[in-house]
Amino acid sequence: MALTEQRQLAFEFDASRRRTYADFVRQASRELVVYRHAIANFITTSLSARYRRSVLGFFWSLLNPLFTLAIMSVVFALLYKRDIRDFGLYLFSGLLPWNFINASIAMGADCIISAERYLKKMYVPRVAFPVVSLGIEFINLLFSLLSMFIVMLLIGARFRLTVLLLPAALLLLAAFLFGLILMVSAWTVFFRDLSHIIEIALRALFYVTPILYPLSLLDNAAISAVLKLNPFYYFITLSQELVYSGVLPAPDLWAVCLALSVLSLLVGTWVFHKLEMELIFRL
């Protein structure tokens, strides 16, 4: 089976020919280009709806994470007897990427199910919806980063030059998440309770990732070894080193993140390729 030319102008389908993984990847990338306006529309509509619902509109998107972080900084700085400004920056550097991880997986898990309205009325490539979920949360992340930098300026925190590498780290994280979203978005169609399980798993992972507590709290080798089984640990550490510590992350750390992203993309696209055709019959 193969799609020829632009999907919206012509297509061919032959049930006796099996679609290969390469066919799927080629078709999906082409369709994402053809449907770019629809993807952009879904993203902007969702973002503007989210911000319109609040009185202060767009500003809430900046203020909300700031207040949360301010409260947490005060609480944990007192708890650990650390300087609020210093600990606040540490929190920021781990919590913002974590919020991105959490929100995009939660949204991605439901994206095919909530797109039923469109998928059953007209042809829309299924792969567009994982992209939309990731896009929405990525833009949200950029907003919260913006507010983080504003706060850093206000409290006179030191800007580390390494922050310039943050975009590269976030793109790696986005690629890693895209693979995960592809997997969970297809699986939740088959097992509707999966999104609850994912939610609980993410909450547990949050506490085993050094975000709320400093790394130095863990001088137990056994515990650190267990923590390193968590793939998110590497991405969060990367961000913390770039934004907070100001040290150039070791090449090993970059390599682990890159390997995780590639692996996740490969598995994610493969799972989606296997299940995609069946999705419409399960909605």
Binding site: L9, A10, F11, E12, F13, S16, L119, Y123, F281
Partner: peptide, 17 residues
């Protein structure tokens, strides 16, 4: 429209749907 893929047979559609 392309919403369902047939399990048997072939189809070809040309034109903007």
């Amino acid at each position: 429209t392309g919403i369902y893929q047939p399990h048997e047979g072939r189809m070809m559609v040309r034109g903007k749907i």
